[in-house]
Design a protein around this nucleic acid. Structure first.
Length: 494
DNA sequence: TACATACAC
DNA sequence: TATGGTGTATGTA
């Protein structure tokens, strides 16, 4: 097994059986072979880090210790100043709906409650988006291909996604959140982060845990959905805690510094948001398994890791969100892995997987489709693109990107295509036919607004001069026309 | 700026 | 037989 996709909750023999079934199904596939190549690259990276580590001197470590001591002092000071307007320490809550999409279907059609069921993955390339808790006992997880899920559980029911339904449910849940914090932040349909400090000030009869129990009960009463929550001194800890007692549970992390350090010290590093499978593997190679290991090995890690990663690790091992007590970010930069919901979008993209092909005509037609979709999104977002990135994936799952900056006023499907088609032609030319391709997409970034909305006057003038305001940027063909073309033209090899 | 990686959902 | 799409951040050259 290369990267273990299983989470806790599946025990002993079951777990070994599940891993074996997944391995047997996966091995030999192109996807699996690409995973192996990625794994080998991570092993190389670890080897380079170890070579670097061997050259670390005592004085390097002593210097790192000094730097770390200063940084830790600044972080502790920032913790003390993280209080509300009346000087009260904040009470942050992260709330997460349990198996959200699957649960929405269960509320509508209760027969799904007692059988293994998953959502998504019904299309050709299907991967599952969510599985209910009955299915999870079989080892079924989000992002698992449907055909592997069926090997684990032949009787699995797979339902189509129904986003309209999820949006309605999420809107109801949000009315509950807003009663507890009208300024709550959501990074996705199924979760929210709340500052409960003002609410608790107005309800001194309630403990934080009681208030959150009541909030979760209200969500259940009003939607039939269960939610899990974490309560802590900051959003990062609250998010970690919301995962601890899933489903339909909650956890309060101590608010004192010693309690916080004990909590993060015991955590496996993979639980910190921002540490994924690869970083977990790298840290593991240096014997760093828990938050306490990070803290203990900080001087050593400081000497071998890149600045963003080492600062991130220092913060989280202290139980503080990354970037604490740093000077303000330069203009245009945004913060924190995991994303700040308030920051505006920095890019828009459209990509599609299809049956592998070597046909240039098909790839061109598909690229036109993606440009048309992207053009619609750019127009809806009232922005133009300064940089365009072309992405293409080989049948082997290896991914290539090519990008190019524009004059900053690009938005129509035709313009997008004129910029991006040469990248497609170049990439295809670089590969010996019959190289097969399975995905293609376009991304627009360096976005500039079509009006004064956060943008510079110079850009606005430029747009007018370019004659692109007013929404008359439809391309020559209709969307439907282009789509049927994409299908019809399939097969014509250059 | 160009390209590749890692991560979250 | 067979593994998604959108968006953010970061490292390196």
């Amino acid at each position: 097994m290369l990267i273990n996709p299983l989470k806790a909750g599946t025990g002993g023999a079951d777990r070994a059986h599940i891993e074996a079934v997944i391995y047997e199904a996966s091995k030999g596939t192109r996807f699996f072979e690409e995973q192996k190549r990625r794994h080998a690259r991570t092993a190389d990276r670890i080897a380079r880090l170890k070579a670097h580590a061997a050259r670390v001197t005592r004085s390097d470590l002593a210097e790192a210790e000094q730097t770390i001591a200063h940084r830790r002092a600044a972080i502790e000071a920032a913790v003390l100043s993280d209080v509300d307007a009346d000087g009260r320490p904040r009470v942050m809550v992260h709330c997460d709906l349990d198996a959200f999409y699957a649960s929405v279907h269960e509320v509508d059609e209760p027969q799904w409650r007692t059988v293994p069921m998953a959502v998504g993955g019904t299309g050709g390339d299907g991967v599952l988006t969510t599985a209910n808790y009955v299915a999870r006992r079989f080892g079924i997880r989000s992002a698992m291909p449907t055909w592997i899920a069926r090997k684990l559980c032949p009787q699995l029911a797979v339902l189509d996604l129904d986003f309209a339904k999820y949006r309605v449910a999420a809107a109801k849940v949000r009315t509950v959140f807003s009663r507890y914090d009208p300024r709550f932040r959501s990074a996705s349909l199924d979760e929210a982060s709340l500052d409960l400090t003002p609410y608790l000030a107005e309800h001194p009869e309630l403990t934080p845990a009681q208030a959150v129990e009541a909030m979760r009960a209200a969500i259940h009463a009003e939607t039939g959905l269960t939610a899990s929550a974490g309560i802590a001194a900051n959003t990062m800890l609250a998010k970690i805690a919301s995962d601890a007692n899933k489903p339909n549970g909650q956890l309060l992390v101590p608010f004192d510094r010693l309690g916080i350090l004990a909590f993060v010290g015991a955590l496996p590093v993979r639980k910190f948001p921002g540490i994924g499978a690869v970083t977990d593997h790298v840290l593991d190679a240096f014997g760093v398994l828990t938050g306490a290991d990070i803290a203990a090995q900080m001087p050593f890690l400081w000497t071998i890791l890149t600045p963003a990663l080492r600062d991130y690790l220092l913060c989280v091992s202290m139980g503080v969100p990354s970037g604490a007590a740093l000077p303000p970010a330069p203009p245009g930069a945004s913060s924190t892995p995991g994303g700040d919901a308030a920051t505006r979008r920095s890019g828009i993209s459209s990509e599609r997987t299809f049956k592998s092909t070597a046909s240039l005509a098909f790839l061109q037609a598909m690229l036109r489709d993606q440009c048309a979709t992207l053009a619609d999104d750019l127009r809806r977002s009232r922005v133009f693109a300064r940089t365009l990135t072309f992405k293409i994936k080989k049948e082997s799952f290896a991914v290539l990107t090519r990008s190019r900056s524009t004059n900053g006023y690009v938005r129509t499907a035709g313009e997008l295509y004129r910029h991006v088609e040469p990248m497609l032609l170049a990439v295809v030319r670089e590969h010996r036919p019959p190289t097969q391709w399975r995905l293609l997409g376009v991304r627009a970034s360096g976005l500039v607004g079509e009006n004064a909305d956060g943008m510079t006057a110079g850009v606005r003038v430029g747009v007018r001069v370019g004659g692109n305001d007013g929404g008359n940027d439809r391309d020559d063909a209709t969307r439907d026309g282009r789509r049927s073309d994409a299908v019809r033209r399939r097969g014509g090899h250059p």
